[in-house]
Amino acid sequence: MSTSPFGPAADKFRDERTRVELDRLLQEAVETSKRLVELYKKEAGKYKRLAEMERERRREVEARLRACSKLLDEGPDLEAKLNSLIPDAVRAVASLPPPPETSQLQIQLEATERDRDAFAELLDTATQERDAALRARDAAIARLQPRQDGERHLGEAEALKARLDAPTLRGVLEQAHHHCSSLVITADLDETKKLEHHQKAPHWRIRLAATLATMQAYAEAKDLARARGGRAGPELANLKAYCASQPFPLLAEGKVIVSEGQTASSSPRGKAQRTLRVPEDIDPSGKAVMVEHIRIGDGAPPAPRLHYLDDTDRRGLLVIGFFGDHLYNAGTN
Rank of each mutant, 00 (worst) to 15 (best):
T102C: 06
S103N: 11
L105E: 11
L105S: 10
Q106W: 03
L109T: 12
L109P: 02
E110C: 08
A111H: 07
A111M: 11
E113P: 04
R114S: 13
D115W: 09
D115C: 07
D115P: 00
D115N: 14
D115S: 13
R116L: 09
R116W: 07
A118R: 14
E121G: 06
L123F: 10
L123E: 15
D124R: 15
A126H: 15
T127N: 14
T127K: 11
Q128I: 12
D131Q: 12
A132Q: 11
A133Y: 04
L134G: 07
L134W: 04
L134M: 07
R135E: 12
A136T: 12
A136D: 15
R137H: 13
R137N: 11
D138R: 09
A139R: 10
A140K: 06
A140E: 04
A142K: 11
A142S: 15
A142Q: 13
A142F: 03
R143G: 01
L144D: 04
L144Y: 03
P146M: 06
P146Q: 06
Q148Y: 09
Q148K: 10
D149T: 03
G150W: 11
E151K: 11
E151I: 03
E151F: 14
R152E: 10
L154Q: 11
A157W: 01
A157E: 04
A157L: 01
A159L: 02
L160D: 01
L160Q: 02
A162L: 14
R163W: 03
L164Q: 00
D165S: 12
D165L: 10
D165W: 09
D165I: 14
A166M: 06
P167R: 12
P167E: 12
T168I: 08
L169Q: 09
L169C: 06
G171W: 08
G171D: 05
L173S: 00
Q175Y: 00
Q175E: 04
A176F: 08
H178Y: 05
H178M: 10
H179K: 05
C180N: 01
L183S: 05
L183K: 04
T186C: 11
T186L: 08
D188E: 10
D188K: 10
L189F: 07
T192G: 01
T192F: 07
K193Q: 10
K194T: 13
K194E: 13
K194R: 15
L195Q: 04
H198I: 01
Q199G: 07
K200L: 05
K200R: 08
P202K: 03
W204E: 06
R205M: 11
R205Q: 12
